[in-house]
Amino acid sequence: MPDITVEALTGPGRAALHAVLLCGKGSASIIDQAFCGRGLSPHGTIIDADGDVIDDAILIEWPGEAERFVLTLHGSPFIRDRVIERLMQLGAAAAPSTARLWPARGQKCCNKVREEALLALPTALSHQACAFLLEQASERGFSGWLARSVEQGVVRQELDELLRLSDVGIGMLVAARVVLAGEPNAGKSTLFNVLTGHQRVITSHQPGTTRDLIEEEMCLLGFPIQLVDGAGLRSAAGEVEREGVRRMEAAMEAADLVVYLVPPGAVEPVAGMKGTPRGRTLVIHSRRDEDPGGEIAGLGISSVTAEGLPQLQERILQEIYGDDRNLTGRVCPFLPGHR
């Protein structure tokens, strides 16, 4: 496999992390042998010929037509060299030159942005977020745009576009807070378990089962989301349940989005009522498997049959970030300090 090359993207010596680039037709085959992933997560391990772990790593497939993979590792140069050696054992050759992703032009003024992107990689929850960071660290991303702006200046229209997209770029790394709300037994906890992928919350047909706030960070179509479940909204009799309702109402007030579930037979909340924040509430009809023929206005879902769940995920992101969320090939800030 002479067309496959490997090289270090980071400088010599110890650093916060190191990055290695593997590129060329057939690179995916080497990755399959050297990288052990963890489901859909970009996080995994690099293993040697005996199956022993060399290091934890993050794997990103660089966007574009050519096969290119970036592995980010811990900051030891010894570990970086062992990983390169392992990839060469599997058929890669040492690259004749470096900086294939980051040409020399503009490096001096953009090292800070590039370093910020690389340091943010371990916190990225999805392949999409990792690829987004690497693209923004490159010449065609935010780092390269800064280099060009120093040389050529900028126009107001460019700045307006960057500010408009910044919420989406920051949202690739910073989880938006989404609260599942509704009356007791609306199906909040069942939906929470389905969206997070495991039985995080005890569910029951007995109203009031969930009392305290339950939170978990999850990945929704590439975006991190802090999902929150809690007490059903009603006039509670006991002190414990009243406290649970109070905490739920406070969580709704602070949320980026409230997904309010309306089960069969329940009445939709009026905007601004029942603790729903105006402009930040998405009303969804839940438990549709129990009343499939009932007439509803808007989206209906069932956590049992999965009806409407893909549309719900899309709607959540649409409500928070709008329709224009594809950042591939576009310049975009990715940290709050970039604004």
Rank of each mutant, 00 (worst) to 15 (best):
F35N: 00
D50H: 14
H43P: 05
I54Y: 06
P42M: 02
A57I: 01
S41F: 05
G37W: 08
I84F: 00
I47K: 07
L71Y: 06
I46A: 03
I54P: 12
T72Y: 03
F78Q: 10
R38N: 10
D81E: 13
I58F: 05
D50R: 15
V83F: 07
V53Q: 12
T45Q: 14
E61H: 14
I58A: 07
I79S: 15
T45S: 13
T72G: 03
E65P: 08
G51A: 09
I84M: 13
V83G: 10
D50E: 14
R68Y: 02
S76F: 09
G39D: 04
S41M: 07
I47E: 09
P63T: 05
R86E: 04
W62L: 11
R80V: 05
G37T: 01
F35K: 03
G64N: 05
S41E: 07
S76Q: 11
E65N: 11
T72C: 06
D55I: 00
D48N: 15
R82Y: 07
A57T: 03
L73M: 08
L40N: 09
I54L: 15
H43K: 12
G51V: 07
A66W: 09
A34E: 10
D81P: 04
D48I: 00
H43L: 10
A49V: 13
L73D: 05
T45A: 11
E85M: 04
P63G: 06
G64T: 12
I46N: 03
I46W: 00
R82G: 08
G44D: 00
I60S: 12
R68S: 12
E67L: 03
L40F: 07
G75V: 06
I60A: 13
L73I: 07
I46Y: 03
V53P: 04
R86Y: 02
C36F: 15
E85F: 04
A34R: 06
A66T: 09
I47W: 04
L59W: 01
D55W: 00
P63F: 02
R68T: 12
G39Y: 02
R38Y: 03
L40C: 09
S41D: 09
T45I: 09
G44N: 00
G51N: 08
R68G: 13
E67G: 04
D55Y: 01
V83Y: 07
E67Q: 15
P42I: 00
W62I: 11
T72V: 11
A34G: 07
G64P: 05
I60P: 01
I60G: 09
I79T: 15
R86T: 01
I47S: 02
I46P: 05
T72N: 02
I79L: 15
I60N: 08
R82A: 15
C36T: 14
P63Y: 00
R38D: 07
H74D: 15
L59T: 01
D56N: 14
R38G: 02
E85L: 06
A49L: 13
E85R: 04
D81V: 01
G37K: 05
H43G: 09
D50P: 04
C36W: 15
